[in-house]
Simulated scan of single mutants.
Amino acid sequence: MAFDASKFLKTPDLEGFDNLKKDELVLLAKHLKLDFIVSMRKQIIKNLVIDKLVDAEILGEEALELKVENVDAFKLKQLELEHELKLKELEMKERLEMDKKEKRR
């Protein structure tokens, strides 16, 4: 049976929410009109949904205990992206140097 976000929101329960799969969280986040990217990690989407549901008083404050701090994950992702950017910059510099050498010939 397909996940029905509106049905879930009519009778939300914390245990059921905690057991949602990523694709179900994505459907719920879309239903709630949250700004997110599907490629985000499951826990990040889950945190966004928890914040929205607690703010809207659909889930109680105890739902906040399900959140996982992603500071380390964000820092790791940022470092990974910075590393990728540096590699791309190096590749571009190498290509420019090769192009200059080719033009000289």
Rank of each mutant, 00 (worst) to 15 (best):
E61H: 06
E94W: 04
L81D: 11
E91D: 13
L96K: 14
Q78Y: 07
E82L: 06
E94Q: 11
L79K: 14
M92C: 01
L90V: 05
G60F: 03
K88V: 10
E65N: 05
K93F: 00
K75V: 11
E84Q: 15
I58P: 01
V71G: 09
G60R: 06
N70R: 05
E94Y: 02
A73Q: 14
V71K: 14
E69W: 05
G60I: 00
A63T: 07
L59S: 07
I58V: 15
L96V: 07
E69Y: 02
E91F: 00
L76I: 02
E80R: 15
E84V: 02
E61N: 02
H83I: 00
E82C: 03
E89N: 02
K93N: 08
E84R: 14
L85N: 05
V71T: 15
L85I: 09
R95N: 13
E94G: 03
L87T: 05
D72I: 13
K77C: 00
L79I: 10
E82R: 09
E61D: 11
H83Q: 06
L64N: 15
Q78S: 10
L90C: 01
Q78E: 10
E62N: 12
E91Q: 11
A63R: 04
E80D: 12
L79A: 07
F74M: 14
L81M: 14
L76K: 15
E61S: 08
K88E: 14
K67E: 06
R95D: 06
L81T: 10
M92E: 13
A63G: 07
G60D: 14
L76W: 02
R95L: 15
L87I: 09
E94A: 12
L96Y: 11
K86V: 04
K93C: 01
K75T: 13
L87Y: 02
E91L: 10
K93P: 04
Q78P: 00
L59E: 13
A73E: 13
V71A: 14
E89M: 06
L85E: 12
L79Y: 12
L81R: 08
L64Q: 10
K67A: 04
M92S: 09
E69K: 11
E69T: 09
K77W: 02
L59A: 03
E65A: 11
K77Y: 08
E61Q: 08
E65M: 04
E84G: 00
Q78N: 06
E82W: 02
E65T: 07
G60V: 01
E61F: 03
K75R: 13
L81I: 09
H83W: 03
M92P: 01
D72C: 02
E94M: 07
V71W: 03
L64I: 04
E94K: 06
L59K: 09
G60A: 08
L64S: 08
E65C: 01
K86A: 10
L87D: 11
V68S: 09
K88I: 10
E61V: 11
E62G: 00
E69H: 06
E61I: 10
L59I: 03
K75Y: 08
